[in-house]
Design a protein around this nucleic acid. Sequence first.
DNA 1: GATAAATCAGACATTTTTTATCCTATTTAT
DNA 2: ATAAATAGGATAAAAAATGTCTGATTTATC
Lengths: 150, 150
Amino acid sequence: MRLSRAAEYAVRCMLYLSTAGKGVLVGRRTIAREMDIPEQFLGKIAQQLARAGLIEIIQGVKGGFRLVVPPDELTLLMVIEAVIGEIFLNDCMLWPESCGRSPVCKVHVVWENARNQLRETLRKATFSSLITESPVLSPDAHSSLSLLNP
Amino acid sequence: MRLSRAAEYAVRCMLYLSTAGKGVLVGRRTIAREMDIPEQFLGKIAQQLARAGLIEIIQGVKGGFRLVVPPDELTLLMVIEAVIGEIFLNDCMLWPESCGRSPVCKVHVVWENARNQLRETLRKATFSSLITESPVLSPDAHSSLSLLNP
DNA sequence: GATAAATCAGACATTTTTTATCCTATTTAT
DNA sequence: ATAAATAGGATAAAAAATGTCTGATTTATC
């Protein structure tokens, strides 16, 4: 019932890119170092974010990632579902036909409500709201100052 | 991000016991058969439900399970957390000290809200409300009639 | 054009979690 | 005593998650 680490990494990455600003190119290594993400793993996650149209990946020397969606249109839900797929809280909701109890059973109604609530909460959380007046980096990430105070 | 099958089984088991009524003894094999749960696995799950004080396990010939809590006081939250532990949606909320971003970062506020909402929704869902006017058994479970129409 | 720095993409490895099952012991009605 | 039922620890099997390795590709720069 927990968020995967990959999704948590994705959020961290997008927080960093949001702080940098839409369209600003940041190297993969930089993000990995600043946000405590295994660099190769970040590569995999970035592919998913790119496929979802949230970032653009630039190859070659001076390559890296850049935010495509403006932070005030980017939501936690978009980032998380880009990585873990559409959120479902239980199986029978995902494959109602395999359960046989779905349309009639009130349990599924509860779960459906819970799911909708959760997704709505995550949809309301834009990255611009998440980075305002709130440090995104851990206290010991000194070098981040180069980004925040250019 | 999905509910474990064990928790789903637990819910099914409690739905059956709730239909039977508080204090009514039902054999493990019966529940397993009627609710499509592997019998040995159900045994394991029942131990957790018993430890949480939700059911009582009777050994010996004519043994089985019986509901301790009345269905109108029994909630989805109680059953699910008895099996999977207290619900947390992400790690940093569970071990804030390991993250270093917890108290300041707004992401965690969002997740905390989401968590509270989810738990509240599940807390409001009592088993008495879940079994009223709603068939709990799959259509092909003929033998269930012996329980429902004694 | 050659080189070096960067990412891509698929395969592979490792670890953790989940989902059971096996087997012996224990309990209890008859 | 016996037989039917569950307990509980050990173990197995499967699935998912978390990375890592390696060769290919892209691109700025010399």
